[in-house]
Computed example of a mutant assay.
Amino acid sequence: MSHILLPDLQEAVSRHCPEKVTHTAFDFLTLYRTETVTDPVLVVYEPRIYIVVQGQKVLHLHDHPLPYGEGQYLISTLDLPVSGQITHASAEAPYLALCISFSPTEMEQLLRESQSASSHQARKMAFQKNNSSPISAMGVSRITDELLDALLRLVGLLAKEGDQTFLAQLYKKELLYLFLHGQQGHVLREIAHDKSDTARINRAISHLRNHFQEQFEIGTLVDIAGMGQSSFYKRFGELTGMTPVQYRTKLRLQEARRLMVHEDMKAASAGFQVGYDSPSQFSRDYKKTFGRPPQADLRYIRSMGVETYKQQHENVWF
């Protein structure tokens, strides 16, 4: 691909995103900008489409690194706790990105309305292998000139006067169609079907996110997903790259760190608050995830400045 339109999109995003985060007039479109590299930050990637316009970042999916950068897009269809780090950014060439949110209902409706792909093509795309990502609920691909053109037209609406919401929704539908029939289409198709493995695992993940501080048998998730035990654990690992216990641990540690930094809670109290019975186990898990024991990590954050840490935490997920 020539990507002749990429510099135009870079200029447009930069012009409309003077701050670190710009929530645009279109509720599904958010723009991002940062001029410095960041430390790794544990965040939860929500189901979204993320396009890097300039710069580069790397995600760590449990123990698996997934770099992506300028001219690439990432699609995530599950809530996934990952460690994110912007690795290429400067004042002269800031990291620029945009995010498009969508719902399973939108994808389902688009699949029903779309008549362009034959049933043979649909089956082929549904089983297409994703070689860029170690998990099947997330994938990275190179952007196409068709996508660049549609993205440029969408961002261009921000410069026009009056309410452009109607056109923006049409452009969004066009973009979702292109993504659906692109290299990551199989990822999006899974989320559109409420009886797919992705949808079933997503129900279990929703329960995990709402109750991660509580003590409950992990086997409860099998019943919530409505799957057989062996197939549940197999598909959970394939989709997320971790076990349900590891997933819960990531959520607990992320919340514990937030309590320590934002609410000035002691490490032992934060560990207990998020569901740990053993302070030593909390400290071991914390060090394994963040690279430092709780108190040492808190001292490091304070040495860099809590506000600097908060800004990094706010901006690294996209």
Score class of each variant (00 low, 15 high):
M1R: 06
M1D: 04
S2G: 13
H3E: 13
H3T: 07
P7W: 14
E11C: 04
C17A: 15
F26M: 02
F28R: 11
L29Y: 11
T30Y: 02
Y32S: 12
D39M: 07
V41N: 13
V43H: 09
E46R: 13
L59D: 15
H60S: 12
D63I: 11
D63C: 13
Y73K: 08
I75K: 03
S83T: 06
A89N: 15
E92D: 15
A93I: 15
A97S: 15
L98T: 07
L98V: 09
I100W: 04
L111G: 08
A117R: 04
G139W: 02
S141E: 04
D163I: 14
F166G: 06
L176A: 03
H181M: 07
I191E: 06
I191L: 14
I191A: 11
A192T: 03
A192W: 02
D194R: 06
K195E: 12
T198P: 00
I205D: 01
I205E: 02
R209E: 10
Q213Y: 04
Q215M: 13
G219H: 12
A225S: 06
A225K: 00
M227E: 07
Q229V: 12
T240L: 08
G241L: 00
R252Q: 14
R252D: 03
E263H: 12
M265A: 12
A270F: 05
F282D: 00
K287T: 05
T308K: 11
Q311T: 10
H313P: 02
H313G: 02
E314N: 09
E314Q: 11
N315M: 15
V316H: 10
W317T: 05
